[in-house]
């Protein structure tokens, strides 16, 4: 049995979480709040690190004065906690984050997830599997037509949507099966920790 402070603490934390399975209780509640606090403190520390190394140091040491702009934007985020009418200033950095974030994901999504995926589906219909892949992909797309303008106007779309639903259900099954597998790994690792690293029974 390993009684070092760290391992024992970690074991107690694990048991506190598992106690929820019996019922909600004080030990679980303490673990829950401890967890939230640790996570929040962790983010602040990591965030500060980034601000220091990517902005403050290059600004002070290398004279990259342009970095005042992102520093100012970052500081403005906190104006929402101000009393009075200056809360709107927090929208400026949000606008910057939203603009860059959504543009970066959209510009790349159109290539990697639209064009390249369609391209990968343009395959010759020379095997049952290939036919199923093409028909299934089109069926799923058909399922997600929402406006009646198209669903009623195009014959066959209704049946396509039905095929799409079955294909998706099979895909959900795959995700479920994989999911179960992954979750068991997590339990295994916790049991290896409690019964192996802590109690020394393995």
């Amino acid at each position: 049995m390993n009684l070092s402070v760290g391992i024992t603490l970690a074991a107690i934390m694990t048991i506190a979480c598992y106690s929820y399975l019996w019922r909600e209780n004080t030990l679980y509640r303490i673990a829950e709040h401890l967890f939230v606090g640790l996570g929040a403190g962790y983010s602040i520390a990591m965030g500060w690190n980034n601000v220091k190394t990517n902005a403050i140091n290059p600004l002070l040491n290398d004279g990259q004065y342009i970095l005042i702009v992102p520093l100012l934007l970052g500081a403005l985020l906190f104006t929402r906690f101000l009393p009075g009418s200056n809360k709107w200033l927090a929208r400026i950095p949000m606008a910057f984050l939203v603009g860059t974030g959504i543009a970066l994901s959209a510009r790349a999504a159109v290539l990697a997830e639209f064009v390249q995926q369609i391209r990968a589906t343009i395959i010759p219909l020379n095997s049952v599997n290939n036919i199923l892949i093409v028909v299934g992909t089109i069926g799923v797309l058909a399922y997600f037509f929402f406006s009646s303008k198209f669903t009623e106007g195009i014959p066959g779309l209704k049946y396509g949507a039905l095929v799409g639903r079955y294909v998706m259900m099979a895909a959900f099954g795959a995700a479920f099966g994989n999911g179960v597998m992954g979750r068991i790994s997590l339990l295994i690792s916790r049991l290896q920790f409690i019964f192996g690293s802590w109690l020394g029974l393995m």
Partner: peptide, 20 residues
Amino acid sequence: RQLAGFSPDILIGVVTVMGP
């Protein structure tokens, strides 16, 4: 998405549920 256009091969390791 972000490596499209760069040269290195991409290898991915994910949790089981993300495999499909």
